[in-house]
Every structure is written in C-alpha cells, then in structure tokens.
Write a protein that binds this DNA or RNA. Structure first.
Lengths: 148, 148
DNA sequence: GTTAAATATGTCGCATACGATATAATGTAG
DNA sequence: CTACATTATATCGTATGCGACATATTTAAC
C-alpha cells in the first residue's frame, strides 16, 4: 500500500522535476549577479535590457518584449527607471503614434565600459565545463524557441 | 574600428549569454504553470512547497529553505498563506524554540489528488526529447549542487 | 557560568513578473 | 467611410524573491 502510494505520486516528488531545478538555478543566477550589478546601479532585468540597447541603440517596447521574452507591462515600469537613471530616453514614434521609441543615451553607452567585465566574473567559477555549457545553451535555446 | 568594437563587447550580446536563456526559460515555465495551478489555488512557489510537504509531512523552515534553494524570508510570507488556505499548520518546536514546525493538514494531503495530473499536463508538449530532458536535468542538478 | 558567536526565523523595502483590464491609435471588412 | 478588430502601451493588484537588518534561542569559549 505504501509502495503503491509512492508509485502513484512519484511524479510529484521534487527530485523528479525538470521545471523546479530550472527555476532554482535561475534564482541562483540572479543572486549571483546582484552584487556585481549593484556597482552599475542596475538590476538583472535592467542589465539584459541594456544589453539590447547597447546592441540596437534604438528600439520600441515590442522589440524588447520579443528579445527578452517578457511581457510589456513588466517593461513599462523598468523603462521608466532606466530613463530616470539617464541611460535611455523615451520618445513617441511620429510614424505610428502607438509606439514608443527607446533610445540609448551617451551615459547609457558609457555604462557598457563598466559592464564589459561582468560576464567573465560570472562564468569564472566553472559551474559546468565548456562542453557542458554549449550543450546546456543549445537545450535552452531550443526550449525558448519551442511553441509551448 | 566597428569590428574591434564588436569584438570587445561580444561578451555582452544577449545571444552569447547562458544566464539569460536560463532566466527566460524559467519565466516561461512559470507562465505555463499558472493556469493549471490556479485550479488548486496555488502559486508555483506554493506548489513546490507543497511537494515537499506531501513527501515529508512535517518539516521546519530550514528544511524548506534547503530543499527549495530559497531564502527564509521568502518562505515566511508564503507559509502564512498556505496556513490561511488550510493546507498546513505552523507550530512552535518544543525542543528548540527557535524552530517552527510545519505540518501537512488533511486538507493539504487531499490536494495531492488534484495535483497528481499536473506533471503530465506540463510535460506533454515535448519541448525536448526524453533524452534531452535527461541531459538537461543532469546539468541543472550539477549547477544546483555546485558551490558558486 | 557569563559572554560572545552562531542559528532560526521574522520585518521591511525594493524590484520584478504576471494576468486582467483599459486606452489610444491603426488596419480592415464590406 | 464607418464600425470592428487588432496592435502597442499603460495601470492595477497580487505574489514573489532578495538583501539588510532585527529578534529570540541555543551553543560554545574560556
């Protein structure tokens, strides 16, 4: 009876989950970034938003939503904060007045010089081997693109 | 010059990140659970907490912190809510009065019957093949156990 | 044995993240 | 060309998740 019960509920054991360790590793990653990012006065979500800005220089909110796999309402508040810090400007799009245009400022661009050291700090502790990182990233990208 | 700049800041491109897709997949997973868990009146974090309770029946806060890779202050509020819903009871430990003892209630145990279908719903869309899931979970578990 | 360190938990403030819903602007069907 | 659908963004309320800090016990040092 006890064995039957174990069998029936096996799928609910924490150790058998895929989603839970994904969630836990993501939390662990965020905790790891925090002290490094504090020196740039950025949170993690602000940091990945700036990554897009450093690369594209000029986007609208929809571009960010797609690049970051977030929802627009999550970004609205965050963009106001980045604007307040002077890293971006927010303008109305003349062409399509529904859009906003987010533009990297000089101060925002300058921040990249301080940010450039972060990736090597983050990855230096060898959580995984180089080969494992490649496999891991391949699986993640597949999951992100997947339609589920 | 433009090429040099690309090279210098390559490590800051979103597409070269490992942490970002981990974070994005975790968000995607949480969004996927939400509608299913709403029927149980549980959030995702409450759900994984209940997983521990279904298995252990009786734990203290520290056990949960270790099992879920969260911080104690995150759990304090959450436990109050689970208590309010009647799924757990919270008592003082007589042996060591610093501890609290969290006990699964009958109502909490009964909830497991409704939860047992969730895992198959979640995993049915084949985000990855069975083999890929095994590899993925192996890497996640390694990262969780790693000391970084 | 008294004091200091360690442990377990709680409080507070901040920054997400989301669904539901609202609003404004644009596209489109007939 | 007008009503309706669609699109892009914003507002609101709820639930985390954390660091910093505070509190209450217990343990350990000497």
């Amino acid at each position: 009876m006890e064995n039957n019960e174990n069998l029936k509920f096996e799928s609910l054991y924490l150790k058998n989950q895929i989603c839970f360790p994904t969630y836990a590793v993501a939390n662990k990653i965020l905790r790891r970034y925090q002290p490094l990012l504090r020196e740039l006065d950025l949170t993690y979500t602000q940091y990945i938003t700036m990554m897009v800005m450093w690369e594209k220089r000029k986007v609208n909110e929809k571009d960010l939503v797609e690049a970051l796999y977030l929802k627009a309402n999550t970004l609205t508040e965050l963009l106001k904060k980045l604007k307040k810090k002077g890293y971006i400007d927010i303008e109305k799009d003349k062409e399509d007045k529904r859009n906003i245009v987010i533009v990297l400022t000089d101060k925002g661009l300058a921040l990249r010089e301080k940010a450039v050291n972060i990736p090597s700090c983050i990855y230096q502790d060898h959580w995984l081997s180089d080969e494992e990182f490649i496999v891991f990233k391949g699986l993640l990208d597949k999951m992100l693109k997947g339609n589920w």
